[in-house]
Amino acid sequence: MTEIMVVAEHREGEIREISLEMLTKAKEIADEINAKVSSVILGHGIDHLVEELASYGQDRVYYLRNEKLENYTIDGYKSALTSFLEDRKPVLTMIGHTAMGLDFAPALAVSLDTPLVTDCIDLKFTNGQLQVTRQVYGGKINVELNVQKHGSYIATIRPTVFKPPEKTGLKGEIEEVTLKIEGEFRTKFKGFIKPEIEDIDISQADVIVSVGRGIGEKENIKIAEELAKVIGGVLAASRPVVDNGWLPKTRQVGQSGKTVKPKLYLALGISGATQHLMGMKDSELIVAVNKDPNAPIFDIADIGIVADLFEVVPVFIEQLRK
């Protein structure tokens, strides 16, 4: 029977949310094309994770167990998944568009000679042909693509787009697959590097004033700093501000920074790229100031101000002082 395969992701003893999010979409597609949904998880000494994964209601969980898969390496994953997928031949393999997934998915697509589509926010089959939706130009434009007809496809899926399913209580079948992984790896995992101790934990703040590239230069940060002080909040930033060294890394909101859910998130000169939105979209009230009316940040803002931040913010500070 046709099978959709979800490659589960786990790190430091936890299943990552994306693995479950993909299951939701996989089941939806499976209902339409009459397929079954399976997950595959790679590792060693993770029996408890395999059990946990199996409780999310899919047909089967394959456990590729091997000492060499204890930590993620491109060589280990590529070698194990190539032989496994060659054998199973799923119609669709879903992989997270994450630091891990975007590292091995292209390599897998080349070794299996399978079409690959990355960072999908939606996908469906029409007469056996895969159609996907992706975002381009920093989220300003959506594009729908037909993928060339093929017996199997690989797609990487954008995190946080689909809701994870509830646990079903019913255990799916677990099948352990033993495999040989030969040869020496060209890439070796050496260890994790934890984020530095922070000056401040922005994820604890009720009010966040966040600045993006639109702030222009380091000098101008103090305008936002002053606003943060007057409004009783903390200062945070999008990635370019941190990359430029204008604020420390501990202030970065987003996929590779902090996830925050304050009562008020004030975004100044931030376009709203997906990696930023991932870190703040669940804030209770989002206010965005941006001079581009088409900036994607307005898609999730509760209050929008289309204006030059340098014209609005100083008056805003003045009025708050009153």
């Binding site: 790190r11 390496t73 994450t98 630091a99 891990m100 590292d103 060209r186 890439t187 070796k188 995992f189 050496k190 260890g191 994790f192 590097i193 934890k194 984020p195 890394k249 970065q252 996929q255 590779s256 920074g257 902090k258 996830t259």
Partner: peptide, 14 residues
């Protein structure tokens, strides 16, 4: 390599 949430990993590559 940058992972998520501020975590990184060190990798040795030939």
């Amino acid at each position: 390599r940058e992972l998520e949430g501020g975590l990184e990993e060190e990798v040795e590559v030939k």
